[in-house]
Amino acid sequence: MEPPPLALVSLVLLCSAGLTRSLSITSVDQSMFEKAQGEKVTLPCTFVLSEEDEGPLDIEWVLIPADNQKKEQIIIMYAVDRIYNNYYAAMTGRMQFTNSDPKSGDGSLDILNLKSTDTGTYQCKVKKAPGVQSQKIQLTVLVKPARTKCSVEGPQEIGKDVILKCVSQEGSPLLSYNWRRVSGIQELPVASTLNKNSGELLLKNASQAYSGTYSCVASNRVGTDECSIELNVTPPINTAGVIVGAIIGTLLGLFILAFLVFCCCKKQREKKYEKEVHHEIREDVPPPKSRSSTARSYIGSNRSSLGSMSPSNMEGYTKTPYSQVPSEDFERPPGQNPAFAPSKVAAPNLSRMGAVPVMIPAQSKDGSIV
């Protein structure tokens, strides 16, 4: 292989010398940053100018989107001795140049109170004609584990398998979980299995010696969070007794309910019957005759008959049994003999009418004829 011509070598050396004399960025020691949410980060961008760079100095920080279809977003810029920081609303008030005078050679950027949405690729561009240089930095904002909760799965009984679970509601991957015992014996039971990725601690064939306080620590590259739980392993519950008690209680409750329903129905029937009897009106039945009016009418008719009787027809009347007289139709006032009431017609009038005096047998209190 022949050596390159002398003229070509001279041209390459001249170009290399010219490049070294142009603008250059010196902060190339770190191109990736990982920070926690809420913290502060400084993205470095220091540079050196050359005598050949005579144009105005421009410094731009640009956010390069992950989607290539989207345009780059200018977030802050220094031009003509002035700072412009109102290009990107999502970082307004949270970003600034590290040096208040970037033309001194330090165009580094400070981002305050980091958010997870700040994750992305940032590019620093330094322009001073004819020199132009740029540098990309990858920023990853991680979220610390937070709102970590511990729980128990499975019956806490002797001889059963118990699972202790640990989950963080917040936190950037990759999360790692670690269980430890904080009461009694500090070491975990021998018959236990820990899954650091899922946060599950399996305790096989639990015994009362497993009882105590357990703590779980969730961690990632930027922070940790912790929770704890109390485990109380007890003897098995008498299931048969519980079932029998539940059945007896249920039957007793049903019996009481049925009794109450029966009483309510009976009460309703009684109220309905009393209401029907009380309000029943029969218009087709005439009111009953009083016993006193019946007795008076009967006595009056007998007196009329007696008044018109002659000695010839008294024989048939005297033969009539005294017991056939309807005694139930008479009203007998207490303390009085059952004698016929005296007629209201005077004796002289009866004589003019042709009536014949008749002796009417009297009756004693016991009903015998005197």
Rank of each mutant, 00 (worst) to 15 (best):
K115G: 07
P130I: 05
G107A: 15
D118I: 04
Q123M: 15
K125V: 08
Q123I: 12
L114W: 06
L109K: 10
Y122H: 02
L114D: 04
G131S: 09
V132K: 13
S104E: 14
S100H: 09
K115Y: 03
T121K: 01
K128E: 11
T117Y: 03
D106M: 00
K115Q: 07
V132Q: 11
S108R: 10
S108N: 12
Q138I: 09
L112F: 10
K136M: 09
G107S: 15
Q133L: 10
V126D: 09
Q135L: 10
S100R: 10
K103A: 07
N99Q: 00
I137S: 06
K127N: 13
P130Y: 04
Y122C: 04
S104G: 13
D118F: 02
K136L: 08
D118T: 02
I111W: 12
P102I: 01
K127W: 13
S108L: 12
Q138L: 10
N99A: 10
L114R: 08
I111H: 06
L112H: 06
G107L: 13
L112Q: 06
Q123V: 15
S100D: 10
K103Q: 06
A129G: 11
C124S: 12
P130C: 00
D101P: 00
K128M: 15
D118Y: 03
P102R: 00
S108M: 13
Q135K: 09
S100C: 02
S104I: 14
V132C: 00
K136E: 10
K125M: 03
L112D: 05
Q133H: 12
K128D: 11
N113W: 09
S116L: 04
P102G: 03
C124Y: 11
K136T: 05
K127H: 15
D101G: 02
S104W: 11
S116G: 05
K127P: 12
S100Y: 10
A129Q: 07
K136V: 02
T119Y: 01
D110N: 14
N113L: 12
T119F: 02
K103N: 07
L109E: 08
G107F: 09
K127V: 14
Y122I: 02
T121V: 04
Q123Y: 12
I111K: 08
Q133W: 13
S100E: 04
Q135F: 11
T121H: 07
D118P: 07
N113V: 13
Q135Y: 08
T121S: 05
K128Y: 14
L114P: 01
D110K: 14
V132S: 14
T121P: 01
V126R: 02
G131E: 03
S104Y: 07
Y122E: 01
N99W: 01
G131V: 08
G107C: 15
S104M: 14
D110R: 14
Y122M: 06
V132I: 13
N99T: 05
S116W: 05
K115M: 06
K125Y: 10
S116N: 07
I137A: 03
I137V: 09
D118H: 00
N99M: 06
S134H: 12
S108F: 11
T117D: 04
D106V: 08
Y122A: 05
D110M: 15
S100M: 08
V126I: 15
P130W: 02
